[in-house]
Nucleic acid binder design. Structure first.
Length: 346
DNA sequence: TCTGATGATTGCCT
DNA sequence: AGGCAATCATCAGA
């Protein structure tokens, strides 16, 4: 530390050397010999500061030039930079090495998975595919919703990329500006390239925190869109008339045991263009509702029973099989509407 | 707008 | 795991 006063003194010496704008006694570096003389000098300097004009700025440029040309300048600045490095910057440096932010990684992963960042996925997101599978049946409506989802997702993607580009551009502009400024200043004050580098990384950190906010809000938007899309599965559509007929036909022709096997369910699902789960739901609902109010379903049961009987008769007449899928439980018979849930045949 | 019908979901049971 | 029962949410006709 005892170096500094000496250095500062020599610095001052460099700065004042041969400057045309300063009083003669300042250029000589001696100052006044008595107290009144010193006060006079300080007063002169203050006076100069207070009366800076365009002309004095020109003088400052000349002074800067003189400073740059001084033979001691590079060595002096090197030493000053070293001292700075050892004090302030080393303290900051200890805090610089940060592990990758887990939250940022999570956001990046999610944006990648949803196809917002990274290469655009042709078939839309995993969420869309999952929801498409979940909603099963209504194909046309589903694909319409799917494309709606994709359109909204690509809108989010576009906004995200535009904003990201804007931030990156602003970051680059600002970094360049600060670097130029520091390089320029490094001619008149001790700034090492390392310090410039550090400043750049500080700027990048600031901008990346802004980017993180952008990523966060983008993720939120995707989540909202996704949940809205997945909720759409609750928007049920009634099965078409033909599907209902097929299901009812099976139900009433197997009234004594209305529990289709897995194969039968698959066959029904195929015929009705719905999922096996929907077939199961339908039979679950039908059984419980039939049981609760047999009287109400009497007419329907009779109608389907008659229809089944007719088709069975036709089938036997033509020597072919009946229309209903696989299980020939009550085939040929006239299933009376006497379903008793306790008497399952299994 | 109301109301019954109906597909889906949930929690419990066997 | 599959079924039952209750319930929810939406559709569709009056």
């Amino acid at each position: 530390m005892d170096e500094q006063p000496r250095l500062m003194h020599s610095h001052a010496g460099v700065g004042m050397a041969g400057h045309p704008g300063l009083p003669q006694h300042m250029q000589e570096g001696t100052g006044g010999t008595d107290g009144d003389g010193r006060k006079q000098d300080i007063g002169d300097i203050l006076q100069q500061i207070m009366t800076i004009t365009d002309q004095s700025l020109d003088e400052a440029q000349a002074r800067k030039h003189a400073l740059n040309c001084h033979r001691m300048k590079p060595a002096l600045f090197n030493v000053l930079c070293e001292i700075k490095e050892k004090t302030v910057l080393s303290i900051r440096g200890a805090q610089e090495e940060e592990p990758p932010d887990p939250q940022l990684m999570r956001l990046d992963n999610m944006l990648l998975a949803e196809g917002v960042s990274g290469p655009e996925k042709g078939g839309g997101s995993a969420a869309a595919a999952a929801a498409a599978a979940a909603s099963g049946g209504a194909g046309a409506d589903n694909s319409a919703e799917h494309s709606d989802y994709r359109a909204k997702l690509s809108q989010i993607r576009q906004i995200y990329h535009t904003e990201l580009e804007k931030y990156e551009q602003a970051c680059n502009e600002f970094t360049t500006h600060v670097m130029n400024l520091l390089r320029e200043q490094s001619r008149t004050r001790p700034i090492s390239p390392k310090e410039i580098e550090r400043m750049v990384s500080i700027i990048h950190r600031k901008f990346s925190s802004i980017q993180m906010q952008l990523k966060q809000s983008t993720c939120e938007a995707v989540m909202i869109l996704r949940s809205r899309f997945l909720d759409a599965r609750r928007k049920r559509r009634n099965f078409n008339k033909q599907a209902t007929e097929i299901l009812n036909e099976y139900f009433y022709s197997h009234l004594s045991n209305p529990y289709p096997s897995e194969e039968a369910k698959e066959e029904l699902a195929k015929k009705c263009s719905i999922t096996v789960a929907q077939v199961s739901n339908w039979f679950g609902n039908k059984r419980i509702r039939y049981k609760k109010n047999i009287g109400k379903f009497q007419e329907e049961a009779n109608m389907y029973a008659a229809r089944t009987a007719v088709s069975a008769t036709n089938a036997s007449a033509h020597g072919s099989q009946a229309n209903s899928p696989s299980t020939p439980n009550s085939a040929g018979g006239y299933p009376s509407p006497c379903y008793q849930p306790d008497r399952r045949i299994q």
